[in-house]
Amino acid sequence: MEFSGKVALVTGAANGIGAGVARRLAAAGASVVVADVDDVRGEAVADEVGGVFAHCDVRDPRHSEAAVATAVERFGGLDIAVLNAGIATGFGLGDDFDVERYRTVMGINLDGVVYGVHAALPELRKRGGGHIVATASMAGLMAMPMDPLYGANKAAVVGLVRGLGPVAAADGVTVNAVCPSFADTSIITDIKSALESAGMPVMSVDDVVDAFVSVLRDGKPGECWFVQAGRPSAPFTFPNPPGPRTATGERVKLDHDPLITEEN
C-alpha cells in the first residue's frame, strides 16, 4: 500500500476534495486526521476512513497547531499535510463588497494555508521530511475577471508555494500546490448551471484527487500542478520574469534561488 505507515492531515476534509483525498490516502494505507469545522460530517468521514477527527477553523493558528498535535498524539508524527480548506468569495469590489466576508474568505483561503504550513513544518522535519500540498486553483494561475478576489487569494497561495518550495526542500519537505479548474463541489453550487450552459466542463472530485496523488508521488519543490478536464495534470510552467541583476548587468545569486533559469 503506497502510503502505508504514513500519517496525513487533511483540512477541509468533511466533504468535497478534502474528503476525497482523505479517503484515497486511507485506502492506500495512511493514517488520516480529518480536520474541519463541520463536526458531524467530519466525524463521519473520519469513522469511514479509520482515522480521527479534529475540529479545525483554519483562520485560527491555534486550531492548526492542535490538529497537528492530534496527528502526533494519535499516530506518532506527521508525514503529509494537505491544506485544502477553502470557500467561495461571492462578492466583488463594487457595491456588493463585504468587509467581514472578505476577511473570512482571506482567513480561510490564504491564512489557513500559512498557519497550516507553520504548524506542520516542525513535525515534518522531525520525520526527516515529508509533503505539504495546498489547494490553490486555476484562478491563481490566470486572470479571474468573474471573481478577482478569489483569484487574489489563490494567486497568493501559488506565490507562497513557489517561494517556500526551495527553502523547505533543504529540510526534505516538498511543498506543492494543486490548481484545479471547476470541480463538482459545493464551492460552485451557485454557478454550476451557468458553467454547464456555457459548455465549461465540470470535473469530478476523483479527477482532482488523482492529481493530489500524482503530486505526492512526483511533485518537485515549489511546483504548482494544473488540473483541467481532458488533459493530464502536470506542473504549470511559469514564464520567467527578468531576474535580479546588478547595476552593471551581472546576475545576482540568491540563497534558495527560486525556480528560474539562468537566462533570466
Rank of each mutant, 00 (worst) to 15 (best):
L259Q: 13
N176E: 08
M200Q: 15
N264W: 10
V213D: 09
R103F: 12
G42I: 08
D98F: 11
N109H: 07
V33Y: 11
G42F: 04
V133E: 07
A71I: 14
A27W: 08
D207N: 02
Y115I: 07
D95Y: 09
V158G: 01
D255E: 12
A66N: 09
V173E: 08
L141A: 00
F226K: 10
S204A: 03
D111C: 01
A229F: 09
A247G: 11
A67F: 05
C179Y: 02
S233Y: 04
P145F: 00
W225R: 03
V21Y: 01
F91Y: 03
R24Y: 05
E263R: 15
N264D: 14
C179S: 03
L149A: 02
A119L: 06
F236W: 13
K126Y: 03
D257V: 13
A30F: 15
M200S: 14
G20K: 06
R24P: 00
A139G: 13
P239A: 09
P241K: 10
A168L: 10
K220H: 12
R251H: 13
T135R: 03
R217P: 06
I187Y: 04
G20F: 00
V34T: 01
A170I: 07
P241S: 13
V227E: 02
I80N: 04
E262T: 10
G77D: 05
F91V: 00
I17K: 06
A139K: 02
A177I: 07
V45F: 00
F182I: 07
A8L: 01
L9I: 08
R41M: 12
S233N: 14
P258D: 01
K154E: 06
H118K: 13
E65C: 12
A156D: 00
V227G: 01
D60K: 10
A143Q: 11
A13R: 01
G230R: 01
D79Q: 10
M106D: 12
N240A: 13
D206K: 05
I132A: 09
V252L: 13
A46M: 10
V21K: 02
L149I: 15
G18Q: 05
A198Y: 08
D257W: 06
L83W: 11
E73M: 10
W225K: 04
D111K: 01
V133Y: 02
S197Y: 12
F238C: 08
S181A: 14
F212I: 04
R231A: 15
E262F: 11
I108H: 06
G90W: 04
I87M: 14
I188E: 00
S4E: 12
C224K: 06
A247H: 12
P258A: 02
A35R: 05
A88F: 11
V252A: 11
D60I: 11
A194E: 14
G151R: 03
I187R: 03
V175D: 07
A8Y: 08
E250F: 11
A14V: 05
A119T: 07
A71N: 11
P201Q: 04
P242M: 06
G50F: 13
V133H: 05
R74I: 10
A177Q: 08
A143D: 15
G50W: 13
V21G: 06
W225T: 03
A168R: 05
M138G: 08
L9E: 01
A26P: 00
T11G: 01
A156K: 04
G107I: 05
V32F: 11
